[in-house]
């Protein structure tokens, strides 16, 4: 269970460009569920996703991972959580150009210091699972959008984290590929993974696989409605 309690996030505090992205948000993400954060642009979806994924600290409020309060942890502990507790799928995939598919999948495992052949085998198995076995040695630039998406999913799973965080994962995909992504989400949930997805794509938050929708507007949680999408 991940819980946020009365979380506020202010960017550039005290400056003319000060911007309040989240205002006293409280929410909970249960284990082994698919939770979607939805809302219009500027509603605070990505900011909340960053806070949940330990990529930033709240200005005030608390974030709990299980029983542990994590919002005030030093950066190196947050980094450790990012590589062990979370896997990340980004809107534009954020694969490292020039590296092969296999090398990209192995990137999050570098700081773990596991034997190279183990990491390599695990990465190859994940790519095989997502039908990319034949693309292992290709650089990511040569992949199609769907293949890049599946590579990003494999990378998110390399350290076997319990929670996957995805930011607008279908934004660059057509309908067929978006449905394929949701099918993978369903498979992984069946394997015990928790998903937190920020999306304003109707295909995503209306999908059967989604257990909970948290709707945001102007940095606050609001009851979900059809205009939020």
């Amino acid at each position: 269970m991940i819980r946020v309690e009365n979380v506020t996030k202010v960017f550039n505090p005290g400056r003319p460009s000060e911007y309040v992205a989240l205002r006293g948000v409280s929410a909970a993400v249960p284990e082994n569920k698919v939770v979607v954060l939805t809302g219009p642009s500027g509603s605070g979806k990505t900011t909340l996703l960053s806070l949940l994924g330990c990529m930033a600290r709240p200005t005030s409020g608390r974030i709990h991972l299980g029983e542990r309060e994590i919002s005030s942890l030093p950066e190196r502990f947050l980094a450790e959580l990012r590589r062990t507790a979370f896997g990340f799928i980004f809107q534009s995939f954020n694969l490292v150009p020039g590296l092969t598919t296999l090398e990209n999948v192995m990137v999050p495992a570098c700081p773990l210091g596991q034997p190279r052949h183990q990491v390599r085998d695990r990465a190859a198995a994940l790519l095989e699972k997502f039908r990319l076995g034949g693309k292992i040695g290709q650089t990511v630039e040569s992949l199609s959008g769907g293949e890049k998406q599946r590579t990003a999913i494999a990378r998110a799973l390399i350290n076997d984290p319990p929670t996957i965080i995805a930011d607008e994962p279908t934004a660059n995909l057509d309908t067929a590929l978006s449905l394929e992504f949701l099918e993978i989400v369903g498979q992984l949930r069946a394997e015990g993974k928790t998903f937190i997805i920020a999306s304003h794509d109707a295909i995503v938050h209306e999908a059967q696989v989604v257990d909970q929708v948290i709707s945001l507007r102007d940095g606050m949680v609001v009851p979900a409605g059809p205009h939020d999408c």
């Binding site: 994924g53 980094a79 980004f90």
Partner: peptide, 19 residues
């Protein structure tokens, strides 16, 4: 900008500053 973005990706994927 490309290198800075790459560092951001690495950090988001669990590398810390020392890494």
């Amino acid at each position: 900008a490309e290198e800075r973005h790459e560092i951001g990706i690495l950090k988001a994927l669990g590398w810390d500053t020392a890494d």
